[in-house]
């Protein structure tokens, strides 16, 4: 089975996000960027499926500027076989990304698509579900456990109240949660080897898709930040403040 994995390059999770002073968007100038953490889990799961002999080829896809290739190279260094980069300088909405991914699914005919459950920049949590809808495939979101056969997959999903297990027909789109696995680090020899692995480059325009924005961002601003309060010396003082100053207990 071939697996297609979607990856996105985002602001590194350890870096504090900054808003441009004029409110026109996020300031990412010179900021450290990384592969979206959930997408690392998706790549890792594909690798494990390949190691288990269930999967024979792993293709990673990313939509974005030239720099998106960094995340694809990382996926290749982790062990993916080849990559596809859809080049665009525009920031696209999840629906547009899903339409683009659909063209690659139709071209590559994988038996499974893995993506992170959400990107940690726009926190939309939409792309996997949308892709699944457009393909008329089954879906499993927030997946923390996956057992795969050729015809079906049994997945455990992290839901608000606990865990849910479902069985879905293949082919499927599975969006993964952090506890699915622990992504491996790329070793230096593998980073070197990844440079030789194939990366197909496609211009978004050449796909002739309608990816127009449905949402207009009118303003971006920092959310209100809290300031540090007081340090209390002991439990008695804490309880007193909570009772008499804050009035919350």
């Amino acid at each position: 089975m071939k697996v297609l994995v979607g990856v996105k390059r985002v602001l590194d999770p350890q870096v504090k996000a900054r808003v441009k002073a004029d409110g026109s968007g996020m300031d990412l100038t010179n900021a450290k960027m990384s592969m979206n953490p959930f997408d690392e889990n998706a790549v890792e799961e594909a690798l494990r499926l390949k190691e288990a002999g269930v999967v024979d080829e792993i293709v990673t896809v990313s939509v974005g500027p030239v720099k998106a290739q960094d995340s694809l190279r990382q996926s290749l260094a982790m062990g993916a076989d080849r990559s596809i980069h859809i080049l665009t300088e525009n920031e696209l909405e999840p629906l547009a990304i899903a339409k683009i991914l659909k063209t690659q699914v139709e071209k590559e005919a994988p038996g499974l698509v893995l993506v992170g459950k959400q990107a940690i920049d726009d926190d939309s949590n939409q792309t996997g579900q949308m892709l699944s809808a457009l393909l008329d495939w089954s879906q499993s979101t927030f997946t923390s456990k996956l057992e795969l056969t050729k015809e079906s997959a049994t997945t455990t999903r992290e839901i608000d109240g606990g865990l849910e297990t479902i069985t879905i027909k293949m082919p499927a789109v599975i969006t993964v949660d952090l506890r699915l696995n622990e992504p491996r680090y790329a070793t230096l020899p593998n980073v070197m080897k990844a440079r030789q692995k194939p990366m197909e480059k496609i211009k978004l325009e050449d796909l002739s898709l309608d990816v127009s924005a449905r949402l207009t961002i009118l303003e971006t601003r920092e959310s209100e930040t809290r300031s540090a309060g007081v340090i209390v010396n002991n439990v008695a003082e804490l309880v007193d403040k909570l009772k008499n100053e804050a009035g919350v207990i």
């Binding site: 999840p94 926190d123 939309s124």
Partner: peptide
């Protein structure tokens, strides 16, 4: 925007060919 809503809303939005506005 719970795991209930997040699961099917984007799927429905894509079938309707509209964006979803999350959370």
């Amino acid at each position: 925007a719970t795991t209930f809503g997040k699961n099917f809303m984007p799927r429905a939005a894509a079938l309707l060919d509209v964006a979803q506005i999350s959370e």
